Amino acid sequence: MYKLIEPEVAGSLGKETELDNSVFPPDVKKLNYEFDGWLGDDILESFPCYIVTESLRETLEGNKFTGVSFHEVIISKSETFSELYPDRELPEFYWLKISGEAFKDDFFITEENILAISERAYFVLQNYNINNADIEDLEG
């Protein structure tokens, strides 16, 4: 059993992002996630990338989930973010790279470019803030 998850979008790809637009979805070489706002979720999206808080990364690594790896992300704040939340500190985030095989690994990207997670991964994610993510069952 798998679930589709569409995480909170708290920003966009920043100026320092390096990507190849000649393929779809774009192949991102270096990720800069620029925050415009943040409702507090531990997993965030800005197509075609996902980022997670350090605490969620540690839990995912500790549970040895398949189909994911973690990489450095450059975090920045837009002018909008700075105006809305002048004193808000952001936690440490990591780039959640998805490489899983459909219906085999705990994390994979569907043909519709939506993140799919195993029931085991969903069970763990429920211990984190995912209040602003859209989640539904994946018919397999």
Rank of each mutant, 00 (worst) to 15 (best):
S46Y: 08
E16M: 05
K77E: 15
D20S: 01
S82Y: 00
T80S: 05
L19K: 13
D20W: 00
G14Y: 04
I43V: 14
H71A: 10
S22R: 11
K30D: 08
V68N: 07
V28R: 04
C49T: 14
P48Q: 04
L19Q: 09
C49E: 10
G14F: 04
G14V: 08
S22M: 05
S78C: 07
I75N: 04
Y33T: 02
G62H: 10
T80L: 13
G62D: 15
E34H: 00
I75C: 08
F81S: 02
I74T: 15
S46I: 04
L31G: 04
K15W: 10
F70R: 00
T66L: 05
G40L: 10
G37I: 08
H71E: 15
S82V: 10
T53D: 05
C49N: 08
I43A: 04
D36T: 08
S69K: 13
N32M: 06
K29P: 00
E58Y: 03
D41L: 03
Y33S: 03
L60K: 02
T59K: 14
G67T: 09
D42N: 13
G62R: 08
L31Y: 09
T17Q: 05
V28D: 11
P48C: 03
G37A: 12
T53H: 04
R57P: 05
K15H: 12
E16Q: 09
E18H: 01
R57F: 10
L39W: 12
E58I: 09
K64A: 14
Y50W: 15
P86Q: 07
E72L: 02
D36C: 01
S76D: 07
L19V: 01
S76Q: 06
S69H: 02
E45T: 13
P86G: 05
I51Y: 08
T17M: 02
F35D: 09
I74Q: 12
E58R: 12
L84A: 07
D36Q: 06
K29M: 10
E18D: 09
E45L: 02
N63Q: 11
P86Y: 10
P25G: 01
L31E: 07
Y33Q: 03
G67K: 01
S69L: 09
W38V: 11
K77H: 09
S69T: 14
V28P: 06
K30N: 13
Y85F: 15
G14C: 06
V68C: 13
H71N: 13
L56E: 11
T80W: 12
N32F: 10
S22K: 08
L56H: 06
K29S: 13
Y33D: 06
N21M: 08
L19T: 01
D42T: 02
K30L: 12
S55C: 02
Y33H: 07
N63P: 00
F70W: 07
K77W: 12
E16L: 12
L84W: 12
E79K: 07
P26M: 03
E83R: 09
D42I: 00
K15P: 13
E61K: 11
T80I: 14
S82G: 01
S82E: 15
C49D: 03
K15Y: 14
V73A: 08
S55N: 14
Y33K: 03
E61T: 06
V52C: 15
E58A: 11
V68L: 15
D27Q: 11
P26L: 03
T66P: 00
T17D: 07
I43C: 05
L56G: 05
T59F: 06
E18Q: 11
G40V: 09
S22T: 15
E34N: 11
E18Y: 02
F81M: 08
